[in-house]
Amino acid sequence: MTIIHRDPHAPHCPPIDKKRELIHVDCASHTYPDGSVGIHDMCFYVLRDEIVALCGPNGSGKSTLLEHLNGLLTPSKGDVWVNGRSITHGERSDLWKDVGVVFQRSDDQLFAPTVLDDVMFGPLNLGMSHDDAQAAAMSALEGVGAADLVHKLPNYLSGGQKRLVSIAGVLAMKPKIMVLDEPTSDLDPLHSERVEALILRFKRDYGISVVIATHDLDFAARIADRVCLVKNGSVFAEGTPDEVFYNPVLIEEAGLTLPQTVRIYLEYCKAQGREPEQRPIRRDELIRALQLSQS
């Protein structure tokens, strides 16, 4: 695990694997017009074929960071590199082709009269013909299991259906990176599981790298290859889920609570008076670890 204690005078973040790099947020800061600091000396990166979870409490700067990745915001200091291009000094008008954003509130994203119109919006902006855009929209809707909603009006969809359509709207553009802001917030368990399965499939079947902002560590634990903890506008620690989540001090410092699987395992070990030798993260891993400890 990397615990980042950066030299405040260092102009750049530590070097990363350039061959696999898709996004590199290099020491970026953003201050809003009202003076509030969104992100501050932020170091963050995304590699090819990985799911990164940005975990932090409300107001820690996760959403501000996500909006930088798509060029909706530009850093007031530092730089953001997407697919080898600087968004501060270079052209960023077509950044949306590489980085698709699924917003936290689906109602903010769905604006068109029908689901089909909304999902076609991105492909049409990519310059596809009407027929190709329609085919891309249908394929994306089928991909998220929402093809039956194609002619529905967004305001008559349930929260879960709206989320699936929002994801389809971005998937239809076939981005290299997909950024999802709190993708399971306000969803029932069934829809949460569907969204979770979809995110895993994006990486496996479509080769899309995924960035998720969440304060739900159970969700992050199940899904992420790498976890970044965010506090006061900066990533202060990162590592694999087991490295990060089996560090209660770090989690407390981030203002979060341990994932349930981790808590159960740690409490079990404490009750048994033994050291936590395994580091189960997912439910199946926990069951295996408990079975092992009993045998």
């Binding site: 917003f103 903010d108 919006f121």
Partner: peptide, 11 residues
């Protein structure tokens, strides 16, 4: 916010 979401999809 709707406008921002549209820009994010190339509006």
């Amino acid at each position: 916010r709707v406008h921002q979401a549209m820009i994010a999809r190339g509006y």
